[in-house]
């Protein structure tokens, strides 16, 4: 499987994503933001960071970068796109995912271990987890407060697009477990077709015990297995 990680000048989790994939046994390529094609790739990762400094609005400028035109085309053709943190912000800015990410309630940047409940293990990105499983993946953002209008929320729910919700240590989806004020404790969503995932937590930070846990591995393995299965089917 061929993985590309988009490197904006202010990305800062791109190497972490690269190293995480290497732990899983894959060797992604970096794609510079000024490139114009993602041809030949199976998965595009939009990593965390501050793409272009993000002084305006997180991700607001990144959507106009040369590479994003082709990422948008790739995504609309059904290609797999995985946005983490700033990557999620960019995906909402360019309309590939619904909703928006506002300044955290409480206004502070939050870097902290975080419990999540897997709300849907039916996606390409989460099929290694059990439905309702509680996993711990750190959050690290100043603008992760997910918001969406009533109609949009209803649509997310009806189409089973909510993938992760913030939870307490005992698995309750409750205000106490919500680090940023996100509506309905939403931490990650997919588009209707299920090929585009955006999430605020950082699974690439939890793929080795020595750096704090392995709960993020499931996502990498899920995507990998998806491609292995597809390969076996001769797609």
């Amino acid at each position: 499987m061929k993985i590309g990680i988009v490197r904006f000048p202010g990305s800062n989790c791109e190497v972490d994503c690269l190293e995480a994939w290497r732990v899983i046994g894959q060797d992604p390529v970096m794609i510079w933001h000024q490139e114009t094609s993602v041809k030949g790739l199976d998965l595009i990762v939009l990593p965390g960071g501050f793409s272009y400094g993000d002084y305006l609005r997180t991700g607001a400028i990144a959507r106009f970068s040369p590479i994003m035109n082709d990422v948008i085309r790739f995504a609309k053709d059904g290609g797999l796109v995985w946005g983490i943190c700033n990557g999620f912000q960019i995906l909402t800015e360019c309309g590939l995912l619904p909703g928006a990410l506002l300044r955290n309630a409480g206004l502070h940047f939050v870097c902290s271990p975080q419990y999540l409940r897997v709300e849907s293990n039916g996606t390409v990105f989460t099929n290694e987890y059990k439905q309702g499983q509680i996993i711990q993946i750190p959050v690290n953002h100043g603008e992760g407060n997910y918001t969406i209008d009533d109609e949009g929320l209803k649509s997310l729910q009806e189409n089973n697009q909510i993938v992760f919700r913030y939870a307490t240590s005992n698995g309750q989806v409750h205000r106490n477990g919500n680090p940023n004020g996100s509506r309905e404790n939403i931490a990650g969503i997919v588009n209707k077709e299920g090929n585009i995932l955006g999430m605020m937590p950082h699974p690439e930070r939890v793929v080795e015990d020595i750096i704090g846990g392995v709960d993020g591995r499931g996502m990498f393995l899920s995507v990998l297995k998806h491609f292995e299965r597809r390969g076996q089917r001769g797609a």
Binding site: N12, C13, V15, D16, E19, A20, G48, H108, F109, V110, C111, S112, P138, N140, H202, E204, R205, E208, I210, I211, G212
Partner: peptide, 16 residues
Amino acid sequence: VYRQYDHQVGTNTVVV
């Protein structure tokens, strides 16, 4: 204090 600092980026931090 330290919750407001990204203390893990780089994925090398063993003792936070």
